[in-house]
Amino acid sequence: MSHEPRPAGRIQEVFVAFLLLGLTSFGGPIAHLGYFRTEFVERRRWLSEQAYSQLVALCQFLPGPASSQVGFAIGLMRAGPWGAAAGWLAFTLPSAIVLVLFALGAAALDGPIGQGIIHGLKVTAVAIVAHAVWGMARSLCPDPQRAGIALAAVFTVVLLSGPLSQMAAIAIGALAGMALCRTHTESDMQALPLPVSARAGHLAGLAFVTLLIGLPLLAWTTPSATVAVMDAFYRAGALVFGGGHVVLPLLEAEVVQNGWVSTDEFLTGYGAAQAVPGPMFTFAAYLGALMGPLGGGIFGAILALMMIFLPGMLLLVAVLPHWNQFRRWDRAHALMRGASAAVVGILGAALYHPAWTGAILGPHEFVLALTGFLLLSVWKLPAWAVVVILAGGGILITI
């Protein structure tokens, strides 16, 4: 593990790369993982396929926004703590700013052209996820055992559904890997360069637990609206498993049932959040900009946004120092092979639902999605260019 200072140029490099993704990464958390793989594994080669699959498997296990946690870890590996902060900020800001402007009265996309763009972006998610499944399956499921684990993960996610299905799929895959993949002796488990000390990990874990227990107690004993909002959004971010969309019922229970925003405002913001790139958790910025207790506006948006992301990042930092030690366990290689194959299965299930079922409504959408897939896999176009092309295609098939 290296603790040498990272050059400022790397931090800027991370910020620019994630800002571009924050402006173009449509389709939800699973699609984001596809964008990340295309950009950082295939194009920039910042980390290997195996290292990326390890990060995805780890972040799927933890509560919080999995795609943002993966991005945070990539920034950390590339440029240290400031790189992690730069990556998170750049990936989060575009959608947060758009949703805050929408909350404050900015016009939403309307009319046939706007609807066509949204439709094209949904089709883009199909192409991105299909490309990720295809590429990861070739690398991570090269034999019948791991292909079978991936298929079992598809069945688990599709048949169980619910927020715990992805965790169950990875757990089953890990156990199956320990039983079925121990005969594979290839050394494909490279150490991850994680510049996080054990002390920093312990402090992050302590902060996570202290805030999770302390904020509700403080909110109960004091009449502070600021503390109440901090508690509500921190708990929502700390207790959600399975991706950004799962946080919606938790937020509804906090902000609607408490009377901070109306049901109509909540549902309108949820609809707008589907049409912007970046993490679904930025929906919190929209709610914070509207909420009555703090008077709404920019302060409420920033507070809500910071508190909903904070627990997932603290928990990730708490776990990372122990990751490479865990991997030295004699059965860790087999376990991670199985978990990585399960990640491929989870992506495959997401390719069907919600990506395919939500976007492919007829032959025109199918042709558009296939075009995007070929642009990514054969012509090697960057993801942002495919977003632009398929958004234009969405306009053509809508008007």
Rank of each mutant, 00 (worst) to 15 (best):
L180R: 12
I389H: 00
I97V: 15
V129P: 01
A342K: 00
D264K: 09
R235H: 08
E42A: 13
A137H: 10
A275W: 03
M306P: 10
T185N: 08
S197Y: 10
A31D: 07
G278F: 04
S25W: 09
L211G: 00
A359R: 05
I213C: 14
P382M: 09
W134C: 10
L206V: 15
Y352E: 00
M336D: 03
A273C: 14
M167A: 13
P354G: 05
G120H: 04
F326S: 09
D188G: 05
L211K: 00
L310D: 03
A304R: 00
I389D: 00
F208A: 01
W82H: 13
D110A: 15
A232K: 03
M291N: 13
R327D: 13
H353P: 03
G173S: 06
A273R: 03
A150W: 01
Q190F: 04
G27F: 08
R10S: 05
L89G: 02
Q274I: 09
A285D: 06
Q50N: 14
S67E: 04
H119Q: 15
S2Y: 07
L164T: 13
L180P: 06
W329M: 13
L212E: 05
I397P: 01
S187H: 12
I30F: 12
P7K: 07
W88T: 14
D264N: 12
T156V: 14
P311H: 05
L396R: 09
V387M: 13
Q69Y: 05
A130H: 07
A355E: 04
F91D: 03
L314Q: 01
A198C: 07
G173P: 01
A204K: 05
P29K: 01
F61C: 14
D330Y: 10
S377C: 06
G27A: 10
L374V: 13
L89H: 00
R146P: 05
Q69P: 02
A228D: 07
L99E: 01
N258M: 06
S340M: 08
P382N: 12
R43N: 08
A355M: 12
G394I: 07
F91I: 12
G244A: 14
W134S: 11
V317W: 00
L314C: 07
P311V: 04
A191W: 08
E252S: 04
A383H: 08
A236I: 04
L374D: 02
P65I: 10
L93K: 08
V343D: 06
C59H: 04
V388R: 01
L251M: 11
A57R: 01
L381R: 10
Q257W: 12
K122E: 09
L287M: 10
A169H: 01
G201Y: 00
T222D: 11
I298L: 14
L381N: 01
H245M: 14
P223R: 05
